[in-house]
Measured scan of single mutants.
Amino acid sequence: MAEQVALSRTQVCGILREELFQGDAFHQSDTHIFIIMGASGDLAKKKIYPTIWWLFRDGLLPENTFIVGYARSRLTVADIRKQSEPFFKATPEEKLKLEDFFARNSYVAGQYDDAASYQRLNSHMNALHLGSQANRLFYLALPPTVYEAVTKNIHESCMSQIGWNRIIVEKPFGRDLQSSDRLSNHISSLFREDQIYRIDHYLGKEMVQNLMVLRFANRIFGPIWNRDNIACVILTFKEPFGTEGRGGYFDEFGIIRDVMQNHLLQMLCLVAMEKPASTNSDDVRDEKVKVLKCISEVQANNVVLGQYVGNPDGEGEATKGYLDDPTVPRGSTTATFAAVVLYVENERWDGVPFILRCGKALNERKAEVRLQFHDVAGDIFHQQCKRNELVIRVQPNEAVYTKMMTKKPGMFFNPEESELDLTYGNRYKNVKLPDAYERLILDVFCGSQMHFVRSDELREAWRIFTPLLHQIELEKPKPIPYIYGSRGPTEADELMKRVGFQYEGTYKWVNP
């Protein structure tokens, strides 16, 4: 592979701008107003304001973009700056750019259920340069409990009458099928589907988006991507930290609602779906819905739930269990780990287990898709061969690698495990991989909904998990304890083995 010439960040961002501006969906010269509902909250200060700053800094926003914060707290732009700027990672050389960014910011205080507050917000936006005809993007960085009041008031008082209007809704989209349907029906009564952007930030990850290209742009994968060759698929999300004093919020939802029903299920769809007619948003989402419709409700015998306990040999936070978090209700049975087996009941995947695993306070930070292939028929190497695996590593250190057998150097035919490896950090030294939120917010500006969740996708996802969630809430089974920093409950490994996964433990990928 030829040595790549190092590029400056300015040059890299210039390439990104060229890609972005050559499309006809990006209205570079139009006025846009980006409204952050819930501007005083954690999500706004840690993710949304920093993301908008990065896009502005790199010249990736339309030229005439204004940012308006809205929340109940009586704040000023200076207050917003004070709480969000520490997350910007701005350099001293960017000081003038930073001043320009905050000059485009404003803030309006108001209630979430008060019509007069929204009329005041609308008047404020109209007073901005060309504000009355601007395109408006409303980001709901809010708890779902206020979605209905907020969307109703936005629709009645704050819509642009000339430009387009788009609304970005953060997960969780309800707690179960019934609450999700209620919320979807409410929002759909106010906005068209092409105006609604239900954001799952995992769909903005580079390697998640790469799944489609790997599958449908490489001839070698087509013939082997089926039940005849693939023994099982494992989708993993692991965090090495616990709730760390923020367990009160987590306890309301648990690990299945927080990660599995959305992030992991979306990745499953991209692995299992048929080739779409095109890369058009609805063509892709149509195929994802077909996959979900082929999955039956989760069966309790295919589920393992766990909850982390303190590690007596650990240090600091590792010595504390979930129930030691003062914000967690006493005696909570909320799971911090889950392993679930699903089956896609169609011709391509009949009988292939899709194993979804996620948890907190585990032994490493990792998100990946792992396809394990069947054993080689007619073994001539005296059971020395391990199964081939194709691994798409989402985070950290984005990579695609194939675990395969090669001859060990020497005189004899002794096979050993090795890999074919594409590590993004080595291959793409001159490429700026956008943060997931950067990519998705740019998608909203461009009107691309491919990486957002459609209402029928959402409904099918909740259909699969709601009976299990209701059973857990009714019966309150005690989750299996696992030690902070471990791989999780051993019962999860036993479940995976029972459905056909072979864990060798003899080879570990190392970032080159």
Rank of each mutant, 00 (worst) to 15 (best):
K205F: 02
E206N: 08
E63W: 10
L20H: 07
D42R: 00
R166Q: 00
I162W: 14
F216Y: 05
D181Q: 11
N165G: 09
L55R: 04
N135I: 05
I199D: 00
T243S: 14
D228P: 06
E19F: 09
L203K: 00
Y202D: 01
V77A: 08
L214R: 05
A127P: 06
E156M: 13
V68S: 01
F191A: 01
I187L: 13
V68P: 04
A217R: 02
G247E: 08
E85M: 13
D181M: 10
I224F: 07
I15P: 06
V146Q: 15
E193C: 05
D113T: 11
R74H: 11
P172T: 02
L98A: 06
I224N: 10
E252W: 07
Y49V: 05
P240S: 11
F102A: 07
E244N: 13
R72T: 00
A44S: 07
A231R: 11
R166C: 00
S180Q: 06
R227E: 05
A127G: 13
L16Y: 12
W54E: 09
N64R: 13
M37N: 04
E148W: 14
A71L: 03
Q83W: 11
L140I: 09
I220R: 01
F173E: 04
G245A: 11
D30V: 09
F87V: 06
E244K: 13
P86H: 11
S29K: 15
I80G: 06
R182D: 14
C158P: 04
V77L: 12
H186M: 11
P143D: 03
Y107H: 08
K47W: 06
Q22E: 15
I35P: 05
T51N: 10
I187E: 02
G110F: 03
N105F: 13
V169Q: 03
N126F: 08
Y49C: 00
G174H: 04
I234P: 02
C158Y: 03
G59D: 08
M159P: 10
K82C: 11
G23P: 12
I162C: 11
H201G: 01
D251W: 01
I230A: 06
D100H: 11
Q161I: 11
A103K: 15
E93V: 09
R57D: 04
E94G: 04
S189D: 12
E148D: 13
L203Q: 02
F237L: 09
V169F: 08
G174F: 01
R246V: 03
L7W: 05
F138Y: 13
D58L: 11
L177F: 09
I256V: 13
L214K: 07
S106H: 14
W54D: 07
Y202C: 00
L130K: 10
Q195C: 12
G14E: 15
I256L: 13
N210A: 08
T243D: 00
I52Y: 06
L75S: 09
I80R: 01
P172R: 01
A141S: 08
H201L: 04
F250P: 05
G254A: 05
N210G: 08
R182H: 10
K205E: 05
K238V: 01
T31V: 15
G14H: 13
S132G: 09
K97D: 08
Q119Y: 15
N126Q: 13
L128Y: 10
G222N: 14
K89T: 08
T91F: 08
R215W: 05
D228V: 08
F88I: 14
F221A: 08
L190Y: 07
W53E: 00
N210S: 10
K46P: 03
I35D: 04
N226K: 06
G110Q: 02
V150H: 03
E193D: 02
T151P: 03
Y197R: 01
R72C: 01
N153P: 03
D114V: 14
L183K: 03
D200V: 04
I199T: 08
G38N: 03
I33K: 01
K89Y: 09
V213L: 10
L55T: 08
P172G: 04
N105R: 03
N122R: 13
N226V: 05
E85G: 10
G59H: 07
D228K: 09
R72S: 00
E206M: 08
I196T: 10
G242S: 07
T65G: 03
T10N: 13
T243Q: 02
D100F: 12
L7G: 08
Q111C: 08
T51L: 02
I36N: 03
I256A: 06
Y112A: 02
Y118D: 04
V213P: 09
A90P: 09
D100P: 02
F101R: 01
L130S: 15
A90F: 09
D228G: 09
A90H: 06
L211K: 04
R57L: 07
S157P: 01
L16F: 13
S132V: 12
R175G: 07
T243G: 09
